[in-house]
Amino acid sequence: MRKTYCIILLISASFIITAFIGQQHPLPTTLNLDIPKGWPKPAKNIFAANPLTEEGFQLGRKLFYDGRLSRDGTVSCASCHQQFAAFSMYDHDFGHGINDGHTNRNVPPIFNIAWMNELHWDGGINHIEVQPLAPITAPNEMGETIENILKKLKADAAYKRMFTAAFGDAQITSQRMLKALTQFTGSIISANSKYDKVKRGEAVFTASEEAGYRVYTAKCSHCHPEPLFTDNSYRSIGLGFNAALNDMGRMGITGDAADSLKFKVPSLRNVELTAPYMHDARFFTLTQVIQHYREKIDTAMATTDPLLKNRIAINEQERVDLLTFLHCLTDETLLRNKRFAPPAN
């Protein structure tokens, strides 16, 4: 009698447990964007309508590293945004797309982009979520249609599982794909360079680094202010017009002549790793860049930034110290962070 009782109890318990498991998908694990101390709030509060979760982040990570987002399967987001180059393209002047296509501009690094209201060198992208549409559909980059990508993803069991884990059901839509990608790219934060450690009291500058920091503060920080080392504005630094590229910069977006040859101010963080420099990749070393500011700025051009009308006086000692300081902006943990590396499968 007692035995029967036990069996009945066990069977009913197992029924209840099975029903419970079968009924609900586990909820995705909420993540918090780890905003470094003293930093402003991210632009547009990007994760307000796109709750950051571990499952969403991992889905975005898989998408970021998946060549199937391009037409012939050879180019992923990570092809041009390499972790070891602070998510810029190492040693390349222009991005490489399918069929040996080349972009018209230097690949910008993608870290701290959660703090950008607009993206791309010309600020043409008005929201981080819609940015991937540009490289994905550009014939010289990934050359694919959103329609085809969704077909490929829907045919993949792993994606079905991961979309379900991230969003509660297996529906695979462009919106979900873009939101997942945003969860990954928006989470890439660089805030652990030697400079950051000094600010947190965990390290000290050498004399030369300290002197370089003073040069930076006096001569660079207006357009490259801490803590992001960019004000994300559009400026012309008197590079002149590059006829081979026929690139008018910000003016191409606004149609305003006052924006002619203006480009987004890039961050100085990880600048050691993101050579070559400028939108048209014309400088291969930081010394060339400093030389431009010292002697080569085209001050006669109408839209050259007023701050640069007299160029920037930097003597040899200052140049050396400044370079030493700029190397303090390299964030080794960003390069080695396993969460941003290609997924295992």
Binding site: I46, A49, N50, G124, I125, N126, H127, I128, E129, V130, L133, A134, T137, A138, I146, E147, L150, T173, S174, Q175, L178, K179, T182, G252, I253
Partner: peptide
């Protein structure tokens, strides 16, 4: 709605009514 990120339904970029190089 032009600058609120990825949309769905009639506003899905699948409908080929979204500029990718100059969002809108």
């Amino acid at each position: 709605r032009n600058c609120s990120g990825a949309q769905t339904g009639a506003l899905d970029p699948l409908n080929d009514m979204f500029w990718t190089w100059n969002s809108g």
